[in-house]
Design a protein around this nucleic acid. Structure first.
Lengths: 228, 228
DNA sequence: ACCTGAACACCGTTCAAGT
DNA sequence: ACCTGAACACCGTTCAAGT
């Protein structure tokens, strides 16, 4: 046995940027943002911390790359539907499911403005905004409003996942505890929040998300046409 | 000089939860999220790290409290305007300016779902949604769509501030560099993004933010009434 | 009741040294 | 060219000890 066989011990594939990114995604999915450390990563890859730095600039670079890999797959999968509104909804559902499977991308999307992952989403949305017939001066507003809405949901989803993890793992338990806390608020000062607490308990995250997209699309279709 | 005069050296006021929170806000404003450490905080307050833990549970508690102090002031200031739409716009402007002055609250809002800072905003929005005449079944959707949009902008604003700081401080330089990067993208794969890159360079963050709120309000007013 | 500050466990990153 | 792993500076948090 020569020293060369060490490579094969890692399973034929030697250390590479791609294998590092995949390992990072696995750690992030399993342990949230706190789960990705260079020590955990180098242990999983059976290497030293320094070796990882040969393929990756720093932790930010690694998070960007992991996020981009997930978003690229998601947008590629949401490409074909009949009408622009249906394609827009497919992008929404795709992003929602990706956020559900990888909640850490919510925080990461809000960390690198204008970077490739965000551009992929913007481009997907923009194509549908164009296809909907929005005139060119209105396209930026329409697309960026949809994008910001999606990013807002992304951030909340990530926060929910983090707290749910801390509470023991179950999502309904989180909604239950938030709803209970809202119902303990002062009646006068927080009348509205109390009135929606019940809906929060039994709501469907994904259905609400899609309804919000439809609402914005309604605003886009109506507000940008001259009134009769 | 007895040892008791040490208290007076801190300027009459001894260490308190409120003084800790104000110092934390100052550190966050000056140095971003990385600027708040217990070492910097204890130095600024002329005390030991352990003393801070007597008044504050942990760093998360401190961030929550700092965020809530800023949001509470902001919502209190946005209370009076004539029409519901104008009050909704006042909430939007208020939040936008608060995000501009304290970009770290963007990340913090996305960290504690259902916590008091978010509830304050939700309650403010909800009141205007009701006043706009949205029927009760539609109020949660309308309010949460607006809230998610605002949270999305909040996150982006925080990210922009962080990157701008890293680039040397100036915001136009950041927009310039993002626009330049977008114009280097592939012509076919990123046609839409390239087409809006120019608008990004010369756009007005605040005006765009308010236009997005108006667009969503249009959707709320129209979509929830039965079609003629 | 409130404060001190050294100590602990852990982190991202670097770098001389190896192959 | 690629990898090793000890070392560095720094972090949040704890806690015995003081007043």
């Amino acid at each position: 046995m020569t020293r060369n066989t060490r490579r094969t011990q890692r399973g034929e594939t030697s250390l590479s940027r791609d294998s590092i990114i995949e390992a990072a995604i696995a750690l992030l999915d399993a342990g949230g943002e706190a789960g990705l450390t260079f020590r955990a990563l180098s242990e999983r890859l059976a290497t030293g911390a320094g070796a990882i730095y040969w393929h990756v600039a720093d932790k930010g670079d690694l998070l960007d790359a992991a996020c981009d890999a997930v978003v690229a797959r998601t947008m590629a999968a949401a490409a074909d539907s009949a009408t622009p509104r249906e394609r827009m909804r497919a992008i929404g559902v795709g992003m929602f499911d990706a956020l559900d499977a990888h909640p850490w991308i919510g925080a990461e999307l809000a960390r690198s403005p204008g970077a490739l992952p965000m551009v992929r989403i913007l481009e997907g949305i923009g194509g549908q905004v164009r296809a909907l017939g929005v005139p060119s001066q209105g396209q930026w507003l329409a697309a960026s409003t949809l994008l910001n809405y999606i990013l807002g949901v992304a951030g909340q989803n990530a926060a929910n996942a983090r707290v749910a993890r801390r509470l023991g793992g179950e999502r309904p338990a989180l909604l239950e505890s938030v709803a209970a806390a809202w119902l303990r608020l002062d009646e006068d000062a927080y009348a509205f929040t109390r009135s929606v607490a019940a809906q929060l308990r039994e709501h469907d995250d994904r259905a609400d998300f899609m309804a919000g997209i439809d609402l914005i699309l309604d605003g886009i279709e109506q507000a940008r046409r001259p009134p009769p």
